[in-house]
Amino acid sequence: MIEKVNDKKIVIANEWSALKKFTDARIALGKTGVSVSLKEVLKFKMAHAHARDAVFSLLNIDELIKQLSSFRLPVYLLKSKAADKHIYLRRPDLGRQLSDDSVNQLSSTNITYDVSISITNGLSATAINNHAMQLLVLLIPMLASSNISIAPICLIENGRVAVADEAASLLNAKISIILIGERPGLSSPDSLGAYITYNPKVGLTDEARNCISNIRKEGLQYKQAADKTFYLIKEALRLKLSGVTLKENSDDTFKLS
């Protein structure tokens, strides 16, 4: 005979749950048998759902172009050679190259610039939709007030970090900055990364870049991110280099390539 269960306290909580205040890690989850409670399982699944949705999210192009127009800079809408997200995930090489049409749009001119700004969805368009403008409204005036010239802005669909090298070199810019949606974590589906590359050209790899990572509401704040980016741009222009030889204190934990 199974006795009727009256005790609803099935899940055993952990007496050390006070430790939770020291970390966002999923500690002191309690247990039923050897397993975690359904409440925690569903919390985890919802976080994963947010991360998955972020990977397949789309750039809010009309809204972004409208907002970017406030900077009174021309905006190019470009594409990488990765035609859709599924190809993008399998073929990082295609995400690093501009489509032929996009290359034609950036046809060579004799004008040179200090800085080219590219924006691409990367692995989270949500990150761009949420944070790109917020960062640029701080950064662009800082550049302008230091007489750093800015090329037309490139909004690129399905790009990897290196796609900005091609765009910036076609625009004759000394420095390439790319804002890109980072690989979503369970607790960070909308984390924005900024990569800075001096003398951008096709074929460069990560060691040539400086990265500012984890730009989001719960992570690195817009003001700090803009200050850091501005500092790195000035240093890169002064020293004529970027990457491992350009020292900074960013806590970049992983890189997109």
Partner: peptide, 25 residues
Amino acid sequence: GVPGADDIMLNYQSTSFHDALFVRK
């Protein structure tokens, strides 16, 4: 063994302390 299988630094999912208990059991 990662707390709740969620590595909050490397941003990926691995196996949790509970997962190891499951397979041992």
